[in-house]
């Protein structure tokens, strides 16, 4: 469904560092209903990728939609995608608009 978002963009982040290195805020039942990136830490995989930006709103993680997911659940989905050994990357579908 996220593919229908007109302004969305798929970003593949390779696991090039021991951490992903993003901070997110938001989730269902908060003022920010989808997780938004608020920090990108230097030296993390996201920073090394160079394409994820502060302000990006995350619509999907490896094809799993985050709409309707509360903050902790969304954070868990992202953390598990990073831990998953079978994949050396995470695909984020993001949009710059809320």
């Amino acid at each position: 469904p996220g593919l229908l978002e007109p302004t969305s963009c798929l970003i593949r982040v390779s696991k090039t560092a021991p951490t992903l290195g993003i901070a997110i805020e938001g989730g269902a039942n908060t003022r920010q209903p989808l997780p938004r990136i608020v920090t990108i830490q230097r030296g993390g995989s996201a920073h090394n990728c160079g394409k994820l930006k502060v302000g990006h709103v995350i619509l999907e993680v490896n094809g799993t939609g985050l709409r309707g997911k509360e903050h902790r659940e969304a954070a868990r989905i992202i953390a598990e995608a990073f831990k998953l050994k079978e994949k050396d990357y995470i695909d984020f579908l993001v949009t710059e608009f809320n």
């Binding site: 951490t19 992903l20 290195g21 993003i22 901070a23 997110i24 805020e25 938001g26 989730g27 039942n29 908060t30 003022r31 920010q32 608020v38 920090t39 830490q41 903050h71 902790r72 954070a75 992202i78 953390a79 990073f82």
Partner: peptide
């Protein structure tokens, strides 16, 4: 719109 304004802020998680 009104309802949206009353929603709480989110916590922040570092990943």
């Amino acid at each position: 719109r009104e309802k949206r304004l009353t929603l709480p802020p989110s916590e922040i998680t570092l990943l």
